[in-house]
Design a protein around this nucleic acid. Sequence first.
DNA 1: GTAGAACCTGACATCAATGTCAGGGTCAAG
DNA 2: CTTGACCCTGACATTGATGTCAGGTTCTAC
Lengths: 121, 121
Amino acid sequence: MRIGELSERTGASVRSLRYYEQQGLMTSERTPSGQRTFHADAVERVRLIQLLLAAGLSSPRILEMMPCIHSGTTTRAQRRMLEGERLRIEERIAELESARERLSRVIRIARERDEERAPAA
Amino acid sequence: MRIGELSERTGASVRSLRYYEQQGLMTSERTPSGQRTFHADAVERVRLIQLLLAAGLSSPRILEMMPCIHSGTTTRAQRRMLEGERLRIEERIAELESARERLSRVIRIARERDEERAPAA
DNA sequence: GTAGAACCTGACATCAATGTCAGGGTCAAG
DNA sequence: CTTGACCCTGACATTGATGTCAGGTTCTAC
């Protein structure tokens, strides 16, 4: 498929797809005229890239872990890296949960105030 | 206390504290010579700002919700805003959890491979 | 009073993925 | 052959909190 279709099917912008390729995160073949052609499994790969990018991993990091993901084989250093990234994600989740709790508290209190003024039941 | 002490006690850089003030997120008094002076409760406030910033809220948003947080009173629009931000945080958490699961799977598989090669027990 | 630490303002730099524009090929349908 | 949609490269812009530097003032301790 061409880049436009891949974009549509993944939700990634055409610009982003070209960027991913430039970062070595994915490959494409080219037609004689130079247009990119992607295999069907590129869809899955793009989704994975987006997932990891959204989790705050840098593209060099993602590049680094691509072989681990595909082969299931890792060196000790790679294992440490993977665990380090997972830890970072977990810390990030904890931060977000803490902020969510804070917001929920504010919302709950505001709701109680509101019901005081205009009892629901 | 002066800005350096507040920085130490909150972990926020002096630069950041000045920025928060500039964004209207906090206030300070000034000595006759122009140096900022903060009240003790500024520590709590900075921690709150950092919590919300870390959760991805913009400083105008945080500014907007400050009165809600302190008074517990909200307009309908504010309520919607608060709930919207909470939703965004929850979506973000879901993204991160999904990435964490993906990484955990990779790590687990790598571990199994490793134990095949060098059985632990 | 003097040295050094801490403070002030203002300005510019940073990071990384993405948006956007310019200028120009390619391709399918009429 | 022409039109319009799609593609190409390359370059510059964006975002927003924070880092950093310059040039200057203030405070503290000796």
